[in-house]
Design a protein around this nucleic acid. Sequence first.
DNA 1: AGGCTTGATATTGTAAACAATAATGGTTGA
DNA 2: TCAACCATTATTGTTTACAATATCAAGCCT
Lengths: 228, 228
Amino acid sequence: MGSSAKEEARIADALCKAVLERKLAPGSKLPEEELAQIFRSNRAKIRRVLLLLSRSHIVTLEPGRGAFVSRPSPQEARDVLASRRLIEVSLLARPYRKLSAQGAGRLRQIMAQEAQAHAAHDAIAMIYLSGQFHLTLIEELGNKVLKSITGELILRMSLIITMYERQNTTCCLSSDHHDLLELLLAHDYAEASALMAHHLEGIESCLDFHREPATTTILSQILQPLKD
Amino acid sequence: MGSSAKEEARIADALCKAVLERKLAPGSKLPEEELAQIFRSNRAKIRRVLLLLSRSHIVTLEPGRGAFVSRPSPQEARDVLASRRLIEVSLLARPYRKLSAQGAGRLRQIMAQEAQAHAAHDAIAMIYLSGQFHLTLIEELGNKVLKSITGELILRMSLIITMYERQNTTCCLSSDHHDLLELLLAHDYAEASALMAHHLEGIESCLDFHREPATTTILSQILQPLKD
DNA sequence: AGGCTTGATATTGTAAACAATAATGGTTGA
DNA sequence: TCAACCATTATTGTTTACAATATCAAGCCT
């Protein structure tokens, strides 16, 4: 049973989810043995996962010192944000295909979940669902390659926001998502693109690259719930 | 001396170069032991390199069977081409910064080398230099994140072209590169963007996704010159 | 007292042996 | 003659033990 790749994907997903949900702070050390215990795995598998995540810029490997959650520099942060903006805004301006009824349905479903999470004040779910909305949009109007690229950028953005966000931040307004869908259904791509630009700029305006962020190194206790 | 990562980068670069230069045909088997001998390395390092390349979609790992040079499907090929077009065309339409004198110099230098390779009928050098031109352009007008994303797309395109190109193909006209630079220096980004779109469409029009391509499995003999 | 050296400890990195799996080739039987 | 089956071989996958390196703490010298 070649479930090894599956298990590694499971571990990688769990780590990515922890990053997405801002539980794993940038700079946190990721000791191999500890991760192996948490995930009921072994060092070899953990090692492969960390290698892979390092390629996605989620983890930084320092030779001889180990693996750490990446701490994107201000410059890298700006580049990631600008790249994501380029892709999403341009795609909306000139989508490869029109939004299908099925696609609209998927987006509505995510929006419903967003509303639910909002009502429950579940900030973590909202972050995740917001990402899902954007990724689904990209897959519907674009393709899977763009989706995968943007998925990586969103993950990196999560690190960036954790590091550089101002105090009173209200992330990704779900009302924007609603308006976006309306515009797309009306085939008003120019307006949709403009709204997306505004939407993403809204996120960026909550960041402050000047203050060097604290290196909040999180203990393994926060990773414990990941094991299942 | 932590030269291990360096050595792995060397091996990965050599393999990527072989893919770029169309020496490694899609579908080729990449046996670990053989690669270890060719690169005077060991299986562990080769294994890590293959794992990394699999993440870049250059190599496909089949559990229990080994590593193969990827054979992108027609759909994946279309997605990769469209994604690259989106990024490059959109960036030229709205560059993050103007082309600096230094940037123009770099581009001119690459163009000079292109002309040289053209005169020498060195098709391999032309492929490489064309890629460098595009990547340099992206770094100058955009940023490093976009450059790295596009670099990966260009590599995948190399596989795509090898698999699906028609017979009489004249790739990437270097005259286009010349005109592109002129337009950028004149700050005519709209025209530059249009030319880039035309340029990339030109490459795509040389592809034929209908015929299933031959699985030209290349022997290690072709990889031998890589060892230094 | 402070910084530096030095030894102990923990963690990472590597190599090698072993196990599991798939490809190969030859044999047998219809 | 061809196809199916089995044994052999080769290749991949995993585990283990070991070596190298960094971290930490205590002691020492200035």
